[in-house]
Design a protein around this nucleic acid. Structure first.
Lengths: 173, 173
DNA sequence: GTTGACATGTAATTGGTTACATGATTAG
DNA sequence: CTAATCATGTAACCAATTACATGTCAAC
């Protein structure tokens, strides 16, 4: 149930339509919590029904501008403070690693080299974001920097690990 | 659709019932791809219907022992070699980071310190596994070690990052 | 004979993805 | 006038979670 909280969070220091929030999503939260258009519109409706959001204004083309209510902010804060983040993270990449023995050594090696490349590309992409985005001083910009640093460290780690893992295969015990 | 491949993978160098596979899951794959009992039994049925698995033997208590077929192995290898691993990984922890501005500085600091602690505990748990599990030489043991190393490096990274992030809050720009 | 491990399944619900469908407004 | 952007929604499907339901066999 994190999407609802993502939407509440985006509405803390701004007000916006589903369309606005979708665009914000793409340029910020999509890396940690992807969502589709249908999901966003659906969830906004439910949040408004539940009184966590209010329709602050209606514009052209049926545009509905949402704003956070008292109870919406309370729910967000409750989620941040009291709800434990999920422990396990699914990774189909690591799942594959378990079964690399079903491939030839060359194929397994290729798999790990590709992962190393992906990690390296991800790292580059994060570096790009760090340089090119002009960071505002709003909440998601300030804290987005902290999250971005995680991405940078993670991709660096993945690259080193994949290198190490590929070496393990090349020189077996 | 990774669960099907997880099951195919487990059946590469052994043969087993849903019950057996569940137990194997818990002690190996659960960290990278959790699955429930109902999911496992359901998926095994579908895989058998599709000819990727065969019922090799039937035992007491309705026990059905599955084995990998030719086309099952082919499908596994295809997934390993040709299907790109998922790019984005959801993290409700990082999602929360974006919204830390909705908390007081103390609350936000506490959140990051708790994350540091979780990472540290995860690291300890992985160290424990590394020491205590007696590793066989079967496929999932050999490659499980490679995956475990990822867990160790990731938890170390998370711990350092959380420490850094907590410091960022304490001494603001 | 009773407890615990073995063993399999179904049903209801939720969250997420993909595809489809429609239409208004603005800028060139 | 026409293309791009704005704007919202529905429907079908799939994967995963939770809870329920049932029953067997072995060991003590």
């Amino acid at each position: 149930m994190s999407l609802r909280h993502a939407l509440l969070g985006l509405l803390v220091d701004r007000q916006g339509s589903g369309y606005d929030l979708m665009k914000l999503f793409e340029t910020s939260l999509a890396n940690v919590w992807p969502a589709t258009q249908s999901q966003v519109y659906g969830e906004l409706g439910k949040l408004a029904d539940g009184g966590l959001l209010a329709v602050a204004a209606e514009g052209p083309r049926g545009r509905k501008e949402y704003s956070l209510t008292e109870s919406g902010l309370a729910e967000l804060r409750h989620w941040l403070v009291d709800v434990e983040p999920t422990r396990v993270h699914r990774s189909d990449m690591l799942l594959r690693v378990f079964f690399l023995g079903a491939l030839t050594r060359e194929e397994a090696h290729t798999f790990l080299v590709k992962e190393q490349l992906r990690a390296s590309q991800d790292h580059d992409a994060y570096e790009d974001i760090k340089e090119k985005i002009d960071w505002g001083d709003d909440m998601i910009s300030v804290n987005g920097r902290i999250a971005l640093e995680f991405g940078l460290r993670l991709s660096a780690m993945r690259e080193e690990w994949a290198q190490w893992a590929a070496d393990q295969l090349t020189v077996p015990s």
